[in-house]
């Protein structure tokens, strides 16, 4: 790994552009063989690696406003890779990669204790209460790059890690050790019809995400861009998913504040 600078893949989602259409959710389900049931209206057991939530400013008609916020796995770095879920996993089924900054999930190691689900402050992890069942014939569209999960394991967004692997394999075959920005993009980024999602290496100054977010290494990657924020910044989870919004109330909704606290930014 000598020639290789460590990557820190991250995502920035522009909430001014996000329309709440849900294409990212379906792109993710299609790419990652996420199963579905006849009734998916109990959202606690509805597996959605990427999920679009609706925020509201709490005001009454006609001042009320809503904003959609897509929530993948935040791929928290915590301090030196001690993300909340990685710290509690007794089976090392989830791990923080120092090479890519991606929090992995290894289904065959997971034995379903769900500590990680309790630890994750973003509800980004889902448990397979049932074996996945595809209607007769529908297995045909399953993607061979992602293994379907079985009953009893936890799953979550992987930043489409299999796409990273494929891109790296291709690069290695061509004698390269580095990827171009567009060679590795997640399914949701690629699909978003509004172009609201930007994905790339936060450590690489040439990548769009770095330029948009301008992470501050002295403060655990907190964005210097005043429009940018992270969810629950004050927990210190150091997430790699950033959001942009021009609306103060949206930025403020990204964290918990006491009534007397004024700022929409973390501290």
């Amino acid at each position: 790994m000598k020639n290789e600078q460590a990557k820190k893949y991250g995502m920035v989602i522009d909430l001014d552009k996000c329309t709440g259409c849900g294409a990212c959710m379906v792109a993710c389900m299609a790419e990652n063989n996420v199963p579905f049931k006849k009734d998916e209206t109990n959202k606690l057991d509805s597996i959605t690696w990427m999920r679009v939530f609706q925020l509201t400013n709490g005001k009454s008609f006609p001042e009320t406003d809503i904003c959609y916020i897509p929530r993948p796995c935040m791929h928290c770095e915590g301090e030196h890779g001690h993300s909340p879920c990685v710290s509690v996993c007794p089976a090392t089924a989830t791990d923080y990669s120092q090479q890519t900054g991606i929090v992995s999930q290894i289904y065959t190691r997971c034995f379903g204790c769900r500590y990680c689900m309790a630890a994750c402050p973003y509800h980004a992890r889902y448990f397979n209460w049932w074996d996945p069942v595809w209607p007769n014939g529908m297995e045909k569209y399953l993607n061979p790059n992602v293994s379907p999960r079985m009953r009893g394991v936890v799953e979550k967004c992987s930043f489409c890690f299999h796409r990273y692997q494929r891109a790296m394999e291709k690069a290695f075959l061509e004698g390269r050790r580095e990827l171009e920005e567009e060679e590795y993009q997640t399914a949701c980024t690629q699909a978003c019809p509004a172009g609201a999602i930007v994905f790339g290496d936060l450590n690489n100054e040439k990548h769009k995400i770095h330029q948009i977010v301008n992470p501050d290494p002295a403060h655990r990657g907190r964005p210097k861009n005043p429009k940018a924020f992270r969810l629950l910044e004050r927990l210190g989870t150091n997430p790699k998913v950033y959001y942009l919004s021009s609306r103060e109330w949206v930025r403020r909704a990204g964290d918990n504040y006491l009534p007397h606290e004024g700022s929409g930014k973390g501290h």
């Binding site: 849900g22 959710m25 379906v26 579905f36 998916e40 209206t41 109990n42 959202k43 609706q54 209607p135």
Partner: peptide, 9 residues
């Protein structure tokens, strides 16, 4: 099925 899954509760 994918789309109906995304419909909010």
């Amino acid at each position: 099925p994918f789309m109906i899954k995304t419909v909010p509760d």
